[in-house]
Nucleic acid binder design. Structure first.
Lengths: 338, 338
DNA sequence: GACGACGAGGAATGCGCTTTCCAGCCCACG
DNA sequence: CGTGGGCTGGAAAGCGCATTCCTCGTCGTC
């Protein structure tokens, strides 16, 4: 059966199209009670389902929210997505999702596709790259915004638009200080490539704070920004550990994300290096799925769901565009750095 | 600046609306070379971005795909979503995401909202509940399908529409057989409430196979269908373990999902019950994020991303609606059942 | 009792695009 | 040289809805 149109409902109820529209789709002006009843009954009988596309066209707003993340299967992003989705629903909007596989060009394409669908706002979550690689995205977002859209970045700012800022520097600094307070002095930082801004921010802040507090950063290891990167770095870390004078304080490794820390620990275990006995390891993010890892991972908790939710609120609320929201964090020292 | 319309492009290029449309939006009929050039140039100069809403209205297809999952932050669903999103992109479609928090009514609402947005197809992922609770969803899907949409379920069939079937029964059976083959005989099953069909399917198949193979199912524990449920059941399991005669074969627990198994193991550890020394634990799903858990979890791997991708292909491809795709699985015996 | 204000319902316009249908042209062929 | 077929570009009719006017009826007021 073909879909009923609003006109069909109006005909069946014996009213005009305008009246039916006012009854069914939330107009400020409500017709008389009898008409309302007739229209609603007719709509129910016909199984009328409003066409949101047509509505969007007529109203010039789609009720859609674009969310682009770098990898939806990564718990970091899926947590953000959960928060964003919930907030979007609360605001009566639907979420258009794009998962880009960490490809800057795919990010740009996603924003372009969202713009074509006339989303009310777009939220881009994920670390930034080099200015060059970000340029295309910035341009696309700029075009979108200057055409009347709103954009919010979760991560490092790119172009204009609001930003929800993860506490990379402050969190990494606080973590360093907490480890120093425990008496740890010799550190290794395990980061991703320099072009990954999140990695760079955490690395630099941690290293600076460690040195400022009297610690030493023995090495900054660079690997892939992923679990497998952490795993791959296991051999290098094991070597560093073995080169340490026996009997001293164990080395402390700060892996710039939890998943890298997890991969690292897995490889170390295979190599017979025990955490925290032989080397301590801390991560960053406190992703929920890894809560039950052994040894329990010391890390910096950041409120991922809240970040998603804040981003959406900034995107659809009446907050001034261009606002920067820095969220809180909490250092969690657990067994992996005992 | 207001958005340029196709009409503006046509005017600037000195051609008709029809010609501009044919040039820019993939018509079979392409105008002469000079016109094509002029139109493209005009579009570029104006920064023209097609309005997909209007296109959808005129073409009567939206290029949208609705995906409803029960909890996007759960790695089970985020993996499915990753596969679905990738397949959707490959087919040139955008994904509308709804995460329902395991609320059947929210599932129904999501499908209704998708129907309003005239998605080409909707994919519903997640376990089913009781027939009563599923009725509303079934009706909503039925209406959507009879209005010309397509629907695919990942999980247990509800209403008509195609199904991508996780190998719950066959997988659980195979796991039981594998454990029996290792010489294990005494089992406990840790499942969710009976209304959670996925839990029921796995529980029943496992128990039947265990008994058929000469094993004994000492108990079927019921808890929440989540990590916390597994955690909460830890005390009961610990008690069962302590009640065992010393020196015998350790008990084997089959938790119907990995996350439940993880929660269970976490609680057992707190209680001083070691896995696998004091009790063995197996899970189901083999979610990627838990790959590095200790002890490594014995489980049944199911191809989550592939399931998402298959569902989308069934939804947008020309496969016969109503098809049932059962995916494969692989029993993975690891340390937790040694 | 007449006039004006107000409110309720309906006709019509437009949102931005696709797609028929038409008219005009050029070429080939008889 | 005339006619028909095949193209090409354009005009126009929707797609399904929101919303602005407009009209008409009703009630209140003087």
């Amino acid at each position: 059966m073909a879909r009923a149109r609003l006109q069909d409902v109006a005909d069946r109820a014996g009213v005009s199209l305008a009246t039916a529209s006012r009854v069914l789709n939330g107009s400020a002006r409500q017709p008389g009670e009898d008409l309302v009843g007739r229209v609603k009954a007719a709509a129910a009988e016909l199984g009328y389902v409003v066409n949101a596309q047509a509505q969007a066209l007529a109203r010039a707003r789609s009720g859609l929210l674009g969310l682009v993340v770098q990898d939806i299967s990564d718990p970091y992003f899926s947590s953000i997505a959960a928060g964003a989705q919930a907030a979007a629903r609360a605001s009566g909007r639907l979420v258009l999702l794009a998962s880009t596989g960490r490809d800057p060009e795919a990010e740009r394409e996603a924003v372009a596709a969202f713009a074509a669908h006339r989303v009310d706002a777009v939220v881009v979550a994920g670390t930034r790259w080099t200015p060059d690689e970000d340029a295309a995205l910035a341009a696309e977002l700029g075009a979108f915004v200057s055409a009347g859209g709103r954009s919010v970045i979760v991560g490092q700012p790119v172009g204009d638009g609001s930003v929800v800022r993860p506490p990379n520097a402050t969190g990494a600094r606080a973590l360093a200080e907490a480890l120093l307070a425990q008496g740890q002095r010799r550190f290794v930082v395990l980061g991703g490539p320099a072009r990954v801004v999140t990695s760079r921010e955490r690395t630099e802040a941690f290293a600076a704070a460690a040195r400022a507090g009297g610690g030493e950063v023995a090495e900054v290891l660079v690997t892939e920004f992923s679990r497998d990167g952490g795993y791959a770095a296991g051999d290098d870390v094991a070597e560093l550990v073995r080169a340490e004078p026996a009997g001293g304080e164990p080395l402390s490794v700060f892996a710039v994300t939890d998943v890298m820390a997890i991969g690292l620990i897995a490889r170390l275990r295979e190599l017979g290096v025990e955490v925290p006995r032989d080397v301590r390891v801390a991560g960053f993010d406190d992703v929920p799925t890894l809560r039950d890892h052994t040894p329990a991972l010391s890390t910096v908790r950041i409120p991922l769901e809240e970040m998603g939710s804040l981003a959406v609120q900034a995107a659809v609320g009446d907050a001034a565009p261009g606002a920067v929201t820095e969220v809180g964090f909490e250092v969690r020292l657990r067994d992996s750095t005992r």
